[in-house]
Design a protein around this nucleic acid. Structure first.
Lengths: 258, 258
DNA sequence: TAGTGGTCTAGACCACCAT
DNA sequence: TGGTGGTCTAGACCACTAT
C-alpha cells in the first residue's frame, strides 16, 4: 500500500480533514468537533472508524476528549518557564522564595508545594553515580515534592541528599524547610550552590505519572536530572524533575567559551 | 466507574499484565510479546480488545509494533547528548567540526548533514521577535538542516539569519558552509558567538515530522529554540531544532550567580 | 431524557513477513 | 503457505453530561 492509498483510508481521511480544519481555524481552540456518530454518518463509515480518527488527533495532542461532552480543540496554555537563573542565590536571598515559587509568582500564579514523602532509601543508579555515594541501602534521603500552580499539578521533583549531609538537619525529616528555599539550608550546612548540571530528556509518562500529574493523552513529560554543585566542586544534591510538557518549558542563557 | 473497576476492564487488564511482565523482565528488550490472537484467546476476549491493550503500551513508548512480525519490547537506544559546550569556539577551532558532527564523533557515530532547502522567507513570529527583524516578507534566510547519525535521521534544524547579515555570503545560498561549521562564517562576518539562549519544550510530533524523522508511535520530540548572541549582545541567528526524544538529550552546565 | 464518549464482540479482508 | 499486524463493519451496552 503506497502513500496515496494510505491517504484514502477512511480513518486517515477523516483525521486529515479535521486536522486541516483545525489548522485553518475552521475549528478554533476550545471548539467542539462533530460527534463520532456525526462523522461516521457524514463519511459513511462505522462509528469505530470515526472514533479511530479522533484517537489519532488525540495522540498528537491536538484535541481533548471529554466523556459525555465531545472532542475539543486543545487550547495552548501559558507555560511556566523555568529560567536558567532560577537557582540564583541573590534571587533567593532577596525574595526568600524557592525557584518554583519565585517563578510562579513572576507569572501571577499561586504556587503550592506538597511534600508527601521523606525517607532514607537506596538511591537509583544514575543518582548514586552523580552524588558519588554507594548504591547501598539508606545512603541517601529522598524528598518527594509535588508542585502545583493555581492548584493544578505541574511538576514532581524527587530530591536526593547524601545521608552524610542531611543527617541531623531538617532536610532529613521535615517537610517544611523554612524561608529561602532548601538551598538556604544547604548553605547553612556548608554547601553553597555555585554550579548546576542539568540533563534533559523527554518521554511519554508512566501510568503513575499520568495519574499524579493528571496528564491528558498526547502530552509527554520533560525529565530533568539536576545536580547541585557547591563551592568546592562537590555534588551535594540531585533532583529528578518530571514536568508536564504542555505546562512547562526550560529557558537557558549560556555563556559560550571563546 | 471507580479505579478498581477500571482495572477490571479486559483491555486494561491485558495491558497491565504485559506492562508488569516487561517491568519484571519476563519480557526483555527486543523480545516479542504474544500475538494479538494469542492474547485474545488467553484472555477470552475479541482480538480488537487484545489489540487495544497493545496499543496502550505502544502509546506509552514501551513497545514497537512491526507489521507482519509482532510487538517487541522497545530497546533503549544510546542517546546523543548535546552538551552545553557544543558551541565552544575553542572546540570548533580545534576540531574544525560543527557542534553536531563533534558530538557524533565523540560517540563513535557517523554524522551526515543534508541541507535540502535554503531560501529567503518571512520569519515565524517567535523567530522575528528574537532576531529583532520585521515579520515581513524576505527579512530572513532560512537554512533547513537534516541531521543523521549512522544514517538514521535524529534531528531537524532550521536556522534563520537576518538578510542584512547573510546577504552576499555563502550563508544565503550555499549548502556547504566550509570548515569550522557555520559559526566560522558568522565570525568572518563580524559576529562571534559569546552567549546562547535556549528555550526548550517537548510535544508530540506533527505528521510531517513523524515522516521526516521516522518517529515511531509513543515517542515525543524535543524542540529547542536556540538564539546565538554575538560579542555586542546582538542576536545574529536563531535555530529551531526538533529532535527525536528517544535519541537525543541535552546536557547543560550552568554557573549559578551568587 | 437524549446525546455524548468508552468499551467490547465476532466477524471480515488486506498487507507484510518468514519459510 | 501460515502467521502476523492493519483496518473496517455493524452492531451492543455502559457511563457521563446536560437539560
Amino acid at each position: 500500500m503506497n502513500q496515496a492509498e494510505r491517504e484514502m483510508l477512511p480513518s486517515r481521511r477523516i483525521a486529515d480533514a479535521l486536522r486541516r480544519s483545525i489548522a485553518e481555524r475552521t475549528f478554533r481552540p476550545g471548539d467542539r468537533l462533530p460527534s463520532e456518530r456525526d462523522l461516521a454518518a457524514r463519511y459513511r463509515t462505522a462509528r469505530n472508524t470515526a472514533r479511530e480518527a479522533i484517537g489519532l488527533l488525540q495522540a498528537e495532542g491536538l484535541v481533548d476528549v471529554r466523556h459525555g461532552k465531545g472532542a475539543f480543540v486543545r487550547r495552548q496554555t501559558p507555560m511556566i518557564r523555568l529560567g536558567a537563573d532560577r537557582y540564583s542565590n541573590r534571587v533567593r536571598r532577596e525574595t526568600g522564595l524557592s525557584p518554583f515559587r519565585a517563578e510562579a509568582q513572576r507569572q501571577g500564579k499561586t504556587a503550592r508545594v506538597d511534600v508527601p514523602e521523606i525517607g532514607r532509601i537506596k538511591p537509583p543508579t544514575d543518582v548514586a553515580a552523580r552524588l558519588n555515594v554507594p548504591e547501598d541501602d539508606l545512603s541517601v534521603v529522598a524528598r518527594v515534592n509535588h508542585y502545583f500552580a493555581d492548584d493544578d499539578p505541574v511538576q514532581i521533583g524527587i530530591t536526593y541528599i547524601p545521608w552524610a549531609i542531611a543527617e541531623g538537619s531538617v532536610l532529613a525529616t521535615e517537610a517544611k524547610t523554612g524561608t529561602g528555599s532548601i538551598y538556604a539550608r544547604f548553605e547553612e550546612l556548608g554547601h553553597r550552590i555555585t554550579r548546576a548540571r542539568e540533563e534533559i530528556t523527554a518521554r511519554m509518562p508512566r501510568p503513575d505519572e499520568t495519574v499524579a500529574l493528571a496528564i491528558p493523552p498526547g502530552v509527554p513529560v520533560v525529565e530533568v536530572l539536576h545536580t547541585g554543585i557547591d563551592q568546592e566542586g562537590r555534588a551535594f544534591e540531585v533532583t529528578r524533575f518530571v514536568m508536564r510538557a504542555d505546562l512547562n518549558g526550560l529557558d537557558y542563557d549560556l555563556p559560550v567559551e571563546d
